[in-house]
Design a protein around this nucleic acid. Sequence first.
DNA 1: GCGACAG
DNA 2: ATCTTGTCGC
Length: 269
Amino acid sequence: MEPVHAEFLPDASLSREEIESLQREIADNAVFEDRFAFDPAAVQISSEPSQQQLTTAASDPNSDAAADAPLVAGVDQAFLDDRAISAVVVLQVGEVVERTHAVRELSIPYIPGLLAFREGGPIAAALATLDCEPDLLCFDGSGRIHYRQAGLATHLGVVFDTPSIGIAKNLLCGTPRESVDGRPAGWRTPIEAADAVDCADGTVIGHAYQSRQYESSNRHINPLYISPGHRVAAETTVDLVAALCDGYKLPEPTRLADSYADEIKAELS
DNA sequence: GCGACAG
DNA sequence: ATCTTGTCGC
């Protein structure tokens, strides 16, 4: 796939002020509402026919639900010395249909709020080598849950003008409406903008989502922090991640991209 | 000035 | 993110 807005590609040589200015421009161009062509109910991991698919098959004997199902890409990185290994795994109904990766020199260190300017280049390079056109991109990191509402997932979603979701293991900013401690699997609560975020206080910029939890024990699993990247509404974002989870804390696209990146890293070591 | 801060 | 063995509890 190719960038639709290459002028928005993260350029790490920009000044801090220019970076923040570009992020505000990215946020202005981002759409935090559902604006995608695929059927969200067709995004799933199991190949078991859903009620919807059975209905579709009954009304159209020639349709092939699996062949028409949305392509969901997971993107994640591993690091080796001063290089980033960006890996992409594309799934269709839980089946891997394409994998690709890119290795690039890192230009700047990790700075909270500027992650896209450290990892965006390597990620864009990897996505550019992809033969297929994903319907949805899943990133490790935040989307709208960001000081200027332009986290990694939002930035790359806008650059490629493709629906995207941010999946983080830790909260960058914003405030959970309720305490997130020890919640059962399936539980979710909104993350609201607070003073540090560039929008009205109380605006729902994402959700904490408990993708997995131990039945009964002393220890507990922390929730994921999910936010819209581009062209997906906050609530939908959680529904999609829930549909992409398969017994692990992380949804399959991101989980498989994570292990694929480690695989490439091991080969380079 | 101090604390908080995705990966 | 990364350096890393065993270990506690599902």
